[in-house]
Design a binder for these strands. Structure first.
Lengths: 318, 318
DNA sequence: CATAAAATGCTCAAAATGAGTATATGGGGT
DNA sequence: ACCCCATATACTCATTTTGAGCATTTTATG
């Protein structure tokens, strides 16, 4: 094991980068920990895989904890990026030709250890992904240029657009975060593409979202999509919740993450009948209405995370 | 882009390995392409990421196509292994401290290009995963030592065993291939663990399955689990099917992959009502019974793979 | 003490599922 | 030609699982 570790240390041109989308949920916003690069661009915490790291995940934890003073709870590998756009235009630890991206969930969003680190709503980077208050205005701004671009791709291009963005009768699928971002990238509507030296005419920031260093917005899109999918079949949401919470709070977090509103009564039915939570016995009256029962997740559920997650009984029409 | 490519070439101790679980389905067996190492051990086709490869996936395709003369169709990144067990005990391309594993699906299983390459049923490596003919006998052999081992982990260990192997009333979940393999590894029942220099008393091969080089069996387990999950919500099965097929043939392949038997009438209902396939107009009479209609998948379905997959209407009791 | 604001409880119709039973249509003997 | 066998294909039916509402309870507030 330390033998393997030794190998990793050799100074080499091909550095392995580690990057993490560290997610928390405060109130009703999904937040991600970002750092500001010296060029003033937002980036995910990232750094090189170092000698002393016996494993990739250990490397990540160690690195992040030193940098941000944030202890990571649940950690999951997302994807290894190395395909394209690994240029050294921006960002701190650039120069890695390969970058292993992780998703990490933390319970409390500590005040962001380092000075240049902060917690940001992830919708800052993906304004079109938040449908909680109805169709986001960013979509309206994005739609015309997207159609224009898609028309060049013929029928297939238009179909792709329709299905990914829920246009023309297609249903919005909250999991296709990455596909949507890639579409915008290909269409040249985000600044990242221009930065990568290709054609494009980025939209105003309110519509296209805030750009990130290198391919970090792709990583974050991957993280969001993965998390949105996962909460439906694994009880990962609880990694973001405090020890006790009300069902409404749980619902708020799920809605914040998935970006869609849910039917309250059906949400409760699901969560309760699946035995994901149990009552603590206490109640909390802070909301001005009937006090809510405080719940906790059943610890058995966390064991190996084998139990089903929170399915999403989505509202169809509203 | 070629700038990045240049960097990848630098001779370095930290080679990036690429490995692929290349899957095909012939008749009613799910097959995977394996090569025999000089030590006589089965391994997945793998090799280093080379200079001329602009992207990871291109590197993989290029590499595999040269080595096995097998053109890859659908390709998906699985996971980057680098955590443990990357020792140089066995295998060809060992020495890579990091290995990016891919799943690839091919339509026809060509006669395995190279001499040392062959198509093997994946149940050769995971005999406990095939429940098509009822409870596999491997499970019976595995169960006692597993319980014994689990008991050391207390209640939690036993619960983990119960849920992963569908013991004691729990339902068999065909997707947990990796979790099951890891359990066997931890319990010391597969030779890989002993090879990695840890404690263990491997079972006879009929029960524990054929071992593979380095951590390739983990990779294959990841691939199988991913594929089994994916066929339920994406029409990936069709990447394994010939241009036209009967519904029974489709069902056979799905059963082969998932390792469980399905209810015939309900399977057809699902596939047809979801509009995944359409009739070609022809029929095929070769089975000795009523001739079956030949079907083809609706090409629209493959566009971007956005349509739903084949859900599994599993039999409960038999 | 009425009213607003939540949290809970219950009901109901539509759709999806799990399991069968019944019918159709070839080929292969006799 | 006729019967039988093996499949393929068509329908049925009882249960569950969803999507949507309406109704009731329980506090805080003015």
């Amino acid at each position: 094991m330390s033998e393997a570790a030794q190998q990793l240390v050799e100074p080499t041109a091909l550095a392995i980068g580690l990057a993490a989308a560290i997610v928390a949920a405060t109130g009703d916003e999904p937040r991600v920990l970002v750092v500001r690069t010296r060029h003033g661009i937002d980036a995910l915490p990232s750094g090189p895989l170092e000698a002393r790291h016996p494993t990739l995940e250990a490397g990540l934890r160690n690195w992040v904890e030193r940098q941000t003073h944030q202890a990571l709870g649940y950690v999951e590998q997302l994807y290894t990026f190395g395909d394209r756009d690994r240029r050294e235009t921006d960002g701190e630890g650039a120069g890695g030709a390969l970058s292993v991206a992780y998703l990490a969930l933390v319970r409390e969003a500590r005040p962001a250890g380092a000075a240049d680190a902060s917690w940001q709503s992830w919708y800052r980077y993906f304004p079109w992904e938040d449908w909680r208050a109805g169709r986001p205005s960013a979509i309206a701004a994005i739609e015309p240029p997207l159609w224009e671009w898609a028309a060049q791709g013929g029928k297939l291009g238009e179909e792709r657009l329709r299905l990914n963005f829920g246009l023309g009768g297609a249903r919005w699928n909250e999991e296709r975060v990455l596909e949507r971002y890639e579409l915008l990238y290909e269409a040249g509507l985000v600044p990242e593409r221009v930065r990568d030296g290709k054609q494009g005419a980025p939209l105003p920031e309110a519509a296209r979202g805030v750009a990130m260093a290198v391919d970090h917005r792709r990583m974050l899109a991957t993280a969001i999509g993965r998390l949105r999918g996962k909460i439906k079949y694994r009880p990962v949401v609880f990694e973001l919740m405090p020890p006790s919470f009300t069902l409404s709070e749980l619902q708020q977090i799920v809605e914040a993450l998935s970006g869609v509103r849910l039917h309250k009564q059906n949400f409760r039915r699901l969560v309760e009948q699946q035995g994901l939570v149990e009552e603590t016995g206490e109640t909390r009256a802070e909301t001005g209405g009937r006090p809510a029962r405080l719940m906790r997740y059943r610890p058995e559920v966390l064991v190996e995370r084998l139990a089903p997650g929170v399915r999403l009984p989505a509202l169809r029409r509203t």
